[in-house]
Write a protein that binds this DNA or RNA. Sequence first.
DNA 1: GGCGTAATCTTTCCAGCGGTAAGTTCCTGC
DNA 2: GCAGGAACTTACCGCTGGAAAGATTACGCC
Lengths: 188, 188
Amino acid sequence: MPYHHGDLRRAVLQAAAEVVARDGVDALSLRAVARQAGVSHTAFRHHFGDRRGVLTALAAEGYHGLAAAVATGGEQGFLEAGVAYVRYAVEQPARFQLLFRPGLVDEDDPELVAAREELARTLMTGVAGFAPERETDLAAAPTSDPLALGAWSIAHGLATLALAGVLPAREPAEVAVLARGALAHLAP
Amino acid sequence: MPYHHGDLRRAVLQAAAEVVARDGVDALSLRAVARQAGVSHTAFRHHFGDRRGVLTALAAEGYHGLAAAVATGGEQGFLEAGVAYVRYAVEQPARFQLLFRPGLVDEDDPELVAAREELARTLMTGVAGFAPERETDLAAAPTSDPLALGAWSIAHGLATLALAGVLPAREPAEVAVLARGALAHLAP
DNA sequence: GGCGTAATCTTTCCAGCGGTAAGTTCCTGC
DNA sequence: GCAGGAACTTACCGCTGGAAAGATTACGCC
């Protein structure tokens, strides 16, 4: 075992992603990750700073994944974009929580901000397909367009309600049905 | 200081509620609460079991508060009921998170379940006022009515997005404006 | 009135956590 | 081939939640 790991950053992120996906964000222990990577528990201080730094890097990756999922679903229309959003949340609950739980990440991290903007753009293109006659401004933030914000809120709200265990439905397929029903009540 | 506190359960809940409201759920330390109540850190094991038990009891109280807020807002119509929901979340973020963050509470606790059902009923009466001609079934769960679920999702989604720091708006009043705009796109 | 039992609370201990500080090893540029 | 900085380790600190065992009090029952 060499003194210098070589690609510790990558190894840590991968190990951390596994732990988070399996046991949730709260269960992520730097020491456990370090053990799994065969490294002392203070080794990645240099790469990430503190625990929040690790989570921030992980979250940036997560935003890309969510944006990709929504984009793929969006090829089949606006409604399926929303469904894809909800599916992502229900199928990868811990990853999703990491993205939106307050206080977990460093909000000012450049990579994180960029990843969030990518997601915002993806959401806007989805809404543009829903109400084409509106001449939606693709450059605008979804937070400044009431319709886009409504769509995002429905998808996001349903997803978080499902994760909270408030909905009777648990399986992704069941939740997807609920998502379609709720999204159908959105009017341009 | 008597050996038996007298009303430890009440004292602990009050102290815990203060800590949560001030510093967030994650900052709630049983030891800190115990110190504040002038009691050893294992004293309330008997009353609540473990940490989760304390949070569960706290959450049950919180559901009542949220339901009351929504009911009050609902007197001015459906839209204001939704706005009240969002306001509650933004004005008391930690309390709100406690109610909906996965894994924090014991989902099977009878008091918690009852409190959740009370909230569900309140939400349904709000929706009934929105679409009176639908002859909404007040006894039905909001999760089985697509319109009710859509309304709940919009309010809940907007609230959680705001708490996540994704929206530019931070002040309750600003968020309330966004809530009205988003809710306005919901059609019976 | 007194006694036994159960409820309540304390003391003590444990392993694990994140973070800091100081020291060691290795790579890289000159 | 050597300085200097990057990468990593070891040792330590205070904190946490929980388990176990003991002390104290309340209370029902005879």
